[in-house]
Design a protein around this nucleic acid. Structure first.
Length: 421
RNA sequence: GUGGGUAUAGCUCAGUUUGGUUAGAGCGCCAGGUUGUGGCCCUGGAGGCCGUGGGUUCAAGUCCCACUACUCACCCCA
């Protein structure tokens, strides 16, 4: 028991009993991606470390303490991707995708890696689905990204989600607000939690996001950033909110919403569920108008979101929402005798080519055991072949739902099964 | 990185308080009850160095210590 090798901490196997649910989710998510005319992008699971250091931000927790970084045999520092945006932007630049159309709409469903202490809804290898819209600063793109996220959750049957909205401004107006924030917290600085006292100097916006009781109280009446946005940012934010109204997507404005990644500008949003415990965000995203340029590309804007598959699954299971059905074979071949086993091999191949999911006995078991197996895996029909059947070229086909059994000529099996199921 | 909880069969868990001969149940799995027929039922079987190491004791699944793993929470995030 003790020495068996098991999955590394914070990782999990997804076994057949569960994997069909993942396939269902991925299929449904891709359906909605398609309706919004997004195209899937796949990038390497590891990148040069520098990409994330520059892209995500040197000061973020992700870069400072959560990355899986290693040296390859050539001595280069590589990192398992902790998030997708930096990789997508890298690919966008590397392949000059702006030449393939003014706006690129890219989607993904991929594993991410962060070396954190695991807990409910937080794993070291976890799956995110998301999109990036590159090449336009227009607020409609923000609205489309948010609408797409909401549409996926809606399509999957999720209700009771809350969309939180804020703007984090731009390099022009954020410094002003930062100063306002510092000013209004000046007198209570000493009472903030130790972390926030540091944040006061390094990144005061994060104080708003602190979950500590004291800090929340002290920041309760602090002005929000909305009143201090520059004209452009205010206009953008209003346009986004208008778009949401047009689409009848409810949201709450939340001055405390300050996303943790450095690259965000203007729109920041988050979709939370009350059913996730303390890791309540199922989706987070926003606009990043400087990232492409900072990573060496043209000065174009981007907006996107990422959502957690495992967290989504948690919510769906709690709400008893449909997650697909485990596949059942149409046919289980029951054979007895060497000749029959050979014949059944061939019959199975023919039925499979007709599109049926077929199974046959690989373990050389008794007829009874084969029947039991057919029942256990939920086969619709047992097709029984022995010496008698071989001589008549006719199989005994038993409908396992209602127990009726009929003789069916080998050649007529596909049409019989198609008709009778 | 810091704290709390847990660790007995593939799974869910009894047994630990009051140490005492071969460690249990349900589910699942396998097989028999039907010389070639599933489900329900009956019968049987396989499967556990009771997380690992050490200690106390005549005797440890049970008491003590350490370690490890899992889990929940903090930080932060999807």
């Amino acid at each position: 028991m003790a020495k068996k090798i098991q999955t590394p901490r914070g990782t999990q196997d997804i076994l057949p009993e569960e994997s069909y649910q993942w396939l269902y989710l991925e299929n449904e998510i891709r359906k909605i991606f398609n309706r919004f005319d997004f195209f899937e992008i796949r990038t390497p699971v590891f990148e040069e470390t520098e990409l994330f250091a520059r892209g995500v931000g040197e000061t973020t927790d992700i870069v400072q303490k959560e990355m899986y970084t290693f040296e390859d045999r050539g001595g280069k520092s590589m990192t398992l991707r902790p998030e997708m945006t930096a990789s997508v932007v890298r690919a966008y630049i590397q392949h000059a995708l702006w030449n393939q159309g003014a706006v690129q709409k890219l989607s993904y469903i991929s594993p991410m890696f962060r070396q954190e202490r695991p807990q409910a809804g937080r794993l070291r290898q976890f799956y995110q689905f998301g999109v990036e819209i590159l090449g336009t600063p227009g607020p409609v793109a923000d609205v489309e990204a948010i609408a797409l996220a909401m549409e996926i959750f809606n399509h999957l049957g999720l209700r009771n989600l809350t969309l939180r909205m804020n703007s984090v401004g731009c390099p022009k107006c954020r410094p002003n607000y930062r100063a306002v924030l510092r000013e209004s917290l000046k007198n209570v600085k000493g009472r903030l939690c130790p972390d926030c006292q540091v944040r006061y100097d390094t990144n005061p916006l994060r104080i708003l996001d602190c979950k500590k009781e004291i800090c929340r109280k002290l920041t309760e009446d602090v002005p929000g950033i909305e009143d201090y946005l520059c004209e452009e940012c205010r206009g953008h934010f209003n346009a986004v909110k208008n778009g949401l109204k047009v689409l009848e997507i409810p949201y709450t404005s939340d001055k405390r919403l300050v996303r943790g990644l450095d690259y965000y500008t203007r729109t920041a949003f988050e979709i939370v569920s009350t059913e996730l415990g303390s890791q309540d965000a199922v989706c987070g995203g926003g606009r990043y108008d400087r990232l492409v340029f900072e990573l060496g590309g043209p000065d174009v804007s981007g907006v996107g979101f990422a959502a957690g598959m495992e967290r989504l699954l948690v919510i769906m299971r709690k709400n008893g929402l449909p997650l697909g059905e485990p596949p059942r074979p149409e046919v289980y071949f029951v054979s007895l005798g060497e000749n029959a086993k050979t014949a059944v091999l061939k019959l199975a191949q023919q039925l499979r080519r007709s599109g049926f999911r077929c199974e046959l006995d690989l373990a050389g078991r008794s007829v009874k055991a084969q029947m039991r197996e057919a029942n256990r895996i939920g086969a619709l029909f047992a097709v029984i072949v022995g010496e008698d059947e071989l001589s008549k070229n006719e199989a005994q086909v038993k409908n396992l739902e209602n127990g009726t059994q009929t003789g069916v000529p080998f050649g007529k099996l596909p049409e019989f099964i198609r008709r009778d199921q």
